[in-house]
Amino acid sequence: MTYIVTDNCIKCKYMDCIEVCPVDCFYEGDNMLVIHPDECIDCGVCEPECPAEAIKPDTEPGLDQWLKLNADYAEKWPNITAKKEPPADAKEFDGIENKLELYFSPEPGTGD
């Protein structure tokens, strides 16, 4: 099992989870974060820290697409170990459906 970041992180990109991760397995995209599934130690401390409830265990049904997205982009995006401010309009995007199709950016973030 691993934890993965899902749809609701897109354009919310809260970073509370980064501060509690003991293995620094988060990677930063332009408008979301991902978890490297091979680095995650399944401790689960990140899940309750996400205000958008975007972090889920990969054992939940229907998350295969998100496991693949996390694995793929963790190889392309920079590692991030320090919390930054979320986007100014993050609350406006929290809970919007179909964000992958509407807003996902494959561009990397800036990392640390």
Rank of each mutant, 00 (worst) to 15 (best):
I18G: 04
I18L: 01
E19H: 03
E19A: 05
E19L: 03
V20C: 08
V20Q: 00
C21F: 00
C21Q: 00
P22R: 03
P22G: 15
V23T: 04
D24W: 02
F26Q: 04
F26P: 00
F26T: 02
Y27Q: 10
E28V: 02
E28M: 04
E28R: 10
G29Q: 10
G29R: 13
G29F: 13
D30H: 09
N31P: 02
M32C: 15
M32F: 11
L33H: 11
V34E: 03
V34L: 04
I35P: 10
P37D: 05
P37R: 06
D38Q: 02
D38S: 10
E39S: 00
C40M: 01
I41E: 06
D42Q: 02
C43N: 08
C43E: 01
C43F: 08
V45N: 00
V45R: 06
V45W: 11
V45F: 05
E47V: 09
P48G: 08
E49F: 04
C50D: 03
P51Q: 13
A52L: 12
A52Y: 09
E53A: 09
E53I: 04
E53F: 08
E53R: 00
A54Y: 09
A54N: 01
I55H: 00
I55N: 00
K56A: 06
E60D: 03
P61R: 02
P61S: 11
P61Y: 12
G62V: 01
L63S: 09
L63Q: 05
L63N: 14
D64H: 07
D64S: 04
Q65A: 14
Q65M: 10
W66R: 06
L67C: 03
L67R: 07
L67D: 02
L69W: 08
A71Y: 06
A71H: 08
D72W: 02
D72I: 00
Y73W: 05
A74G: 11
A74W: 02
K76C: 03
W77I: 14
W77E: 15
N79M: 12
I80H: 14
T81M: 06
T81H: 06
A82H: 15
A82D: 14
K83D: 15
K83C: 12
K84R: 13
A88S: 08
A88H: 12
A88Y: 07
D89T: 10
A90V: 15
K91E: 12
K91A: 13
E92H: 02
F93M: 15
F93I: 13
F93G: 07
F93T: 10
D94Y: 04
D94E: 14
G95F: 00
I96N: 07
E97C: 11
N98H: 14
N98D: 15
K99M: 14
K99R: 15
K99L: 11
L100E: 05
L100M: 15
L100G: 08
E101K: 03
E101W: 12
E101Q: 07
L102S: 07
Y103T: 04
Y103L: 13
S105L: 13
S105K: 10
S105Y: 13
S105A: 11
S105V: 12
S105E: 09
P106F: 13
P106D: 07
E107D: 11
P108C: 12
G109D: 09
G109Y: 15
T110E: 06
T110R: 14
T110K: 14
G111R: 14
